[in-house]
């Protein structure tokens, strides 16, 4: 009896949490000028909203920019982050301890609080409105967390004996790192990939400052501009929102376990 009640409660929660998505779907599929209740499904589905939103909000170019920035930022992050973590985890010299704590303490600086000087810096090095600045900025902002995750993993799970054996065979340290250690880091690399892809794909705070030109808009910036211009055409905004969130939602539904594990590891960043 108690179990039945709890089951009903769980089902009820699922329904409640699905409500906003249901409203999004009914909004996005209705014809312009259809003022029927948001709770009612459209009489005939209006797929043209998607193509119209795609054209009007410039979503093709925004999708390319978002994917480009996310891909390169994540790649650089994995490369630079794992490379930095290795000596910090393995060589406990005084210098390395200081550098490790420097990386970790940087995590507490809220990036938005340094917006003004960052903006000035970006303008002065001529990187305003470039995909490059979004890539570099995102890399810098996720590096401390990446180094933290990688060095923790190297310290706790990669046996030193492997590297010592390779050293006897005459391999150089970078050679040992790339040939032997890096392939063993796959679980953290997966977490870093998921954290960085989700946050960088969804980034709005940085993108709205540094990517103001239409040609470099990411999905979130394009969407916010589109909403500003079409506050009366909510069905188009709804359609554009669905297009913008679809890639991550599909990935999440296929890789749910990895997503939840990876994001839990990264939640310290907040």
């Amino acid at each position: 009896m108690k179990k039945k009640l709890l089951t009903i409660l769980a089902f009820f929660l699922a329904v409640i949490h699905f409500v906003p998505f249901y409203v999004l779907i009914t909004t996005a599929l209705k014809e312009r000028g259809d003022f029927s209740s948001k709770w009612v499904l459209p009489s005939d589905i209006n797929w043209e909203n998607f193509s119209e939103a795609w054209e009007m909000a410039n979503l093709g170019s925004a999708l390319f920019n978002t994917a480009f920035i996310t891909f390169f930022a994540a790649t650089i992050l994995i490369f630079v982050g794992s490379l930095a973590a290795y000596p910090l985890a393995r060589k406990q010299t005084k210098l390395n301890k200081v550098v490790y704590y420097l990386f970790i303490s940087v995590m507490i600086i809220p990036p938005l609080a340094a917006l003004v000087p960052l903006y000035q810096l970006v303008v002065s090095i001529g990187l305003m409105n470039t995909r490059t600045v979004a890539i570099l900025n995102n890399v810098a902002s996720f590096l401390p967390l990446t180094i933290f995750l990688y060095s923790g993993f190297i310290r706790s799970t990669i046996p030193k004996s492997l590297e010592e054996a390779a050293r006897i065979d005459g391999a150089s340290t970078p050679g040992i790192f790339f040939k032997i250690v890096f392939p063993l880091l796959k679980p953290v690399t997966a977490s870093v990939l998921i954290i960085s892809c989700v946050y960088i794909w969804n980034d709005f705070q940085f993108a709205i400052f540094f990517l103001q030109d239409r040609s470099v808009h990411t999905m979130t910036v394009a969407l916010s501009r589109f909403f500003g211009e079409n506050a009366n055409n909510l069905q188009l905004v709804g359609a554009a929102s669905i297009i913008a969130m679809l890639p991550m939602v599909v990935l999440f539904l296929f890789l749910q376990k990895q997503f939840i594990k990876g994001l839990a590891a990264g939640s310290v960043k907040g």
């Binding site: 989700v198 969804n202 709005f204 929102s241 913008a244 969130m245 991550m248 939602v249 994001l263």
Partner: peptide, 8 residues
């Protein structure tokens, strides 16, 4: 959690 806060 995986959707942009702007879109939510």
């Amino acid at each position: 959690v995986i959707i942009s806060p702007l879109i939510m």
